[in-house]
Design a binder for these strands. Structure first.
Length: 408
RNA sequence: GCGGCCUUGGUGUAGAGGUAACACAGCAGAUUGUGGUUCUGCCUUCAGGGGUUCGAUUCCCCUAGGCCGCCCCA
């Protein structure tokens, strides 16, 4: 085979598309039930939009973006995530403003230049939503509820919600400073990666899997302990409302996320069935992003769901269901003249809103019957010399084998 | 970006330094106008390139791709 698909991409074949359509339908239904409206933005944006929003030192921006120059020399980037484009589109089209609430959702492909493995591709699909215009912790809970309800509606089991607060502009820098000070004392004993993280992004040290590092991490003060009073109250309220709604979660003081714009509430939904890439949903609050992107100060919170990872989980649960669309009639012909009649009949069936097929490969009568059987058609419509003479067709019920004549 | 494992027809697998096998799928047929069972036949393969060798698909190297872990994330 001369051509193969680019690394880290996948063809989604007809059988699997059925699963995708089902998931997409459920997403739309649940998101709209909660009052979110769909928005569609371009798959590429000005590079600067992502650099600004995601953070210039993050992995996504430093090494994972598909960036290219167009013919006028403008730097463009295939979207690695959808929050920044939604904010951009919201601002540009006046959908979001300080005085009102805006609730938007999206579905579509994202692109990151990463090393592929199970659950991680270079082009992958996300469904997500963004809630603009409120600082109320009830909104955090609303958003998390949508995610939980979505997974319930999809019939997924064994998922867990991990929750944390990373503070705000006031307390987060203080926490990072405290973290640095504590860890610097043991810097020599940390792994190589963590030494680097300590300089670039100290929060990341918290979720290092190295056992040596974990020893120190457990002794480090957690983010929730050092939150400013406002953030602390916010987090407590989120926890309170989650409990009130009966949503169980793990308070994970070490949960940090890879995008710089998060403030206060961050959360993930993880599955134990997926291996290393186990997050099926990730999100959080980003109260400064709209302003950072040149808009007014508008708080917001959102999440994104990894569609491929959901598909993997669903495939496990609904292995091998009949995915063929039901066909009503398959026309079987004895000779060339019959084929002429059949072609007209095909048109007639379609005009009546019925599904029908016939053979276009000049197959033998027997082979056509086989094709009719394989197609799953309810009825075979047989046209032979006798039928032509009588200006009729024989209709055979493929299940019972009963045959009846019908006038054309 | 780093490390490990892997790559045989459309799919799933077997095999061995001497040039490939099985199953399923697909296609055709088993007398003249009837499918789903059975039987027969056909089709298609050693990821690509280089090296060692009389000879490699089997050994070595490179490339590509996949998987797993790290990193990161959906």
């Amino acid at each position: 085979m001369k051509y193969q698909l680019p690394r880290g991409t996948k063809d989604i074949l007809p059988g699997e598309v059925k699963i995708w359509q089902k998931i997409e339908d459920v997403c739309r239904k649940i998101f709209e039930k909660y009052g979110f409206a769909e928005i569609r933005t371009p798959v590429f944006e000005q590079t600067e939009l992502f650099a600004r929003s995601i953070g210039t030192t993050t992995d996504i921006v430093t090494k994972e973006m598909y960036t290219f120059l167009d013919k006028k020399g403008r730097s463009l980037t295939l979207r690695p995530e959808e929050t920044a484009p939604v904010v951009r589109a919201g601002l540009q089209n006046n959908l979001i403003s300080p005085d009102s609430i805006a609730k938007l959702y999206y579905l579509g492909p994202m692109f990151r230049y990463e090393r592929p493995q199970a659950g991680r591709q270079r082009q992958f699909n996300q469904a997500g939503l963004e809630f603009f215009g409120s600082l109320d912790p009830k909104v955090d809970v609303e958003v998390i509820t949508v995610a939980v309800e979505l997974f319930n509606a999809l019939g997924l089991e064994g998922l867990e919600v991990d929750l944390n607060s990373v503070g705000c502009k006031q307390c987060q820098p203080k926490y990072i400073e405290a973290l640095k000070q504590t860890l610097n004392k043991q810097a020599k004993e940390l792994c190589e990666d963590c030494k680097e993280r300590l300089k670039m992004n100290p929060l990341r040290v918290l979720d290092c899997k190295n056992k040596g590092c974990q020893k120190f991490i457990t002794k480090v003060p957690s983010a929730t302990e050092t939150l400013c009073p406002e953030c602390k109250v916010h987090f407590e309220q989120v926890c309170k409302y989650l409990k009130a709604r009966g949503i169980t979660y793990n308070s994970k003081v070490r949960l940090v996320r890879g995008l710089d714009y998060y403030t206060r509430t961050v959360f993930e939904v993880v599955s134990k069935k997926l291996g290393a890439q186990n997050a099926v949903c990730g999100g959080g609050r980003y109260d400064n992003l709209v302003k950072d992107l040149g808009g007014p100060g508008i708080p917001a919170i959102g999440f994104a769901v990894g569609m491929e990872r959901i598909v993997e989980l669903i495939k496990d649960q609904v292995a091998g269901q009949d995915l063929k669309p039901a066909l009503e009639y398959f026309i079987v012909c004895m000779n060339a003249e019959a084929r002429e009649v059949a072609f007209g009949l095909l048109t007639k069936f379609r005009a009546e809103g019925k599904t029908a097929e016939m053979d276009f490969q000049n197959k033998s009568f027997k082979a056509q019957m086989k094709a009719a059987d394989k197609s799953g058609a309810k009825f075979a419509v047989i046209i032979g010399e006798e039928e032509l003479r009588q200006k009729a067709v024989t209709v055979k019920d493929m299940k019972s084998g009963d045959q009846t004549k019908a006038a054309l």
